[in-house]
Each structure stands twice: as C-alpha cells, then as structure tokens.
Design a protein around this nucleic acid. Structure first.
Length: 196
DNA sequence: CACCCGATTATCT
DNA sequence: GATAATCGGGTGT
C-alpha cells in the first residue's frame, strides 16, 4: 500500500494566494462506496474577503458560511443552473473569509468511473474545468463543509511541490469584478488545464 | 478557430 | 426579476 500523507490543517492556515499556488500538484481523493477517484490539481483560483469577486465579499450569508469557517473544509456552490464548483477554505488569521477554487485536475484513479459520471470519453475533457471536475468526482452539496484534512469521502494528499517558475499567474475566469487581478494559477504546459 | 447562445436554478435585490 | 467563480453545441469566417 502506498502511504498517503494527508495535507494538515496548517497547510490551509496561510495566505489564500500561497495556498492556491501550493495546492498545484497536490492530489484530491474522492471515495464513493468502494470506488476511489483521484486527480492531481493543475489549476486553481484564489478568492479573499477583500476581493469584490469573492462570494464572501458582501458579508456572511447562509450559502457562503463555509468561507468564514474553519480552514481545510470544502466550500461548494451551485452555479448557472447546472454546475457545482469545489473550493477549499484557506486564509491567514488576519483574513475573515477566503477560499481556493479548484479549476482543473489531471485524472489519476477511477478514470472509467469519471467517464460514466461525465458521459464523456475524452480523458482530456473529464476534469479541465471547475464544473467538469465536480461532475467527474460526483461532488454535490452533500459534501458541503466536509473536512478535507481527514480521511473520508473527500480529502487532499500531499505531493511534490511545483516549482515557482512552472506556475503561471493570469486573470481569473468568468468574473465581472476585479478582472485585473492575476489570481488564477496553473501548471505551465500541463494538458489538463481548463484553457490553453 | 472565434464568437455566440441556450440550458437551468439558487440566491439576492 | 437579474445575476452568476460554466459547459457544450452551434454558426460563420
């Protein structure tokens, strides 16, 4: 058995942008009954309380409460009538809310099951977008607030850190505010990122 | 390849 | 009633 080191809560207890960049290369594990699905994070976006594009920017509501809660938990939201998106709560002690949107994965385990959930054969199209990877990993509001620093239905394992020079920082996707911020991070030349 | 647009619904105004 | 951290299929160049 491969020994898997789960990422500790302290990993998420730092500046949201640092966490967003260091999550690149880490592995998300999703277990559904006896099936294991996993993928390497290749693209993220950072959202903080002082950022107009962040769901928490206008204050705490019932739906964004997780962003204000304990770091290392999952924040999941439903958007555009048909897609879920997965975030991990991460921020330093001075920031009251913040999280990292997972935008793309490189599939590792359970690719056949992901293809079924996605109704899509092309492996390069399985998880190269936030709505897509949520569908591929069968992530719904049932996982809202799950602690991803403990082994369970959804958690994150450590993996070698990606060198800073291999990380690109570019504008975020799909937002109408704070578009000038270079808070989308991805692994350069990785074929599984959401956009080329 | 670039652009356009419809689907579909929780949340907030 | 408008908007939204999206996707995939369509049309036109």
């Amino acid at each position: 058995m491969k020994k898997t080191a789960i990422l500790p809560r302290a990993f998420y207890d730092r500046d949201t942008h640092i966490v967003a960049q260091e999550l690149l290369g880490k592995v998300i594990i999703r277990t559904i009954n006896d099936v294991t699905l996993s993928g390497r994070i290749v693209e993220t976006e950072a959202y903080t309380f002082d950022d107009p594009a962040c769901h928490a920017a206008k204050g705490k509501t019932k739906s964004n409460a997780a962003l204000f809660g304990t770091v290392g938990h999952a924040y999941i939201y439903f958007i555009y009538g048909n897609h879920y998106c997965l975030n991990f709560v991460a921020r330093d002690a001075q920031t009251c809310a913040g999280g990292v949107l997972i935008r793309a994965l490189e599939p590792i385990d359970g690719i056949v099951q992901m293809q079924k959930y996605r109704n899509m054969e092309n492996v390069h199209m399985l998880t190269n977008g936030p709505g897509k990877l949520a569908q591929a990993l069968h992530i719904t509001k049932a996982l809202y607030g799950v602690d991803v620093t403990q082994v369970g239905d959804l958690y994150v394992c450590n993996a070698p850190r990606v060198n800073a020079e291999a990380i690109a920082a570019v504008p975020r996707i799909g937002i109408s505010k704070a578009q000038e911020k270079l808070w989308r991070y991805y692994i350069k030349d990785n074929p599984f990122v959401s956009k080329k």
